[in-house]
Simulated scan of single mutants.
Amino acid sequence: MDQEKCTLFSSGLKGAETSFGETAEKWGVKEVIYSFETHKLQRERNVILLSQEELERGDISMELASRMLNRTYYETKKIRKVLQTIFHMINGGHQVFVIGTIQDDKSVKGGTGWAVELAKMFNRPLHVYDQPNKKWFTWKNDWVEDEPTIEYDTFVGSGTRYLSDAGHQAIEDLFARSFKETN
Rank of each mutant, 00 (worst) to 15 (best):
M1I: 01
C6W: 00
F9A: 12
S11F: 07
G12M: 11
G15H: 08
G15L: 03
G15S: 06
A24S: 09
G28Q: 04
G28H: 02
G28R: 02
K30P: 06
K30M: 05
I33A: 01
E37H: 03
R43K: 12
E44D: 08
L49D: 13
Q52G: 06
E53V: 11
E54N: 01
L55E: 15
R57A: 06
D59N: 12
L64T: 12
S66M: 06
S66V: 06
M68T: 02
M68L: 07
N70I: 00
R71G: 09
Y73N: 10
E75C: 01
K77H: 12
K77C: 08
R80H: 11
R80G: 11
K81W: 06
V82W: 00
L83W: 12
Q84G: 02
T85C: 05
F87V: 15
H88R: 03
I90R: 03
F97Q: 10
V98C: 14
V98A: 15
V98L: 12
T101V: 11
Q103P: 10
D104H: 06
K106T: 11
K106D: 09
V108F: 07
G110L: 10
G111Q: 09
G111L: 05
L118Y: 13
A119I: 05
N123P: 02
P125Y: 04
L126P: 09
L126N: 11
V128E: 04
D130E: 05
P132S: 05
K135E: 08
F137L: 08
F137T: 08
W139Y: 13
W139T: 04
W139D: 03
D146L: 05
E147D: 06
P148L: 01
P148H: 00
T149S: 13
I150D: 00
Y152S: 12
D153F: 05
T154C: 02
G157W: 07
G159N: 02
R161G: 11
D165Y: 00
Q169F: 07
Q169H: 07
A170L: 06
I171T: 12
I171W: 07
A176E: 14
R177T: 11
F179M: 12
K180P: 06
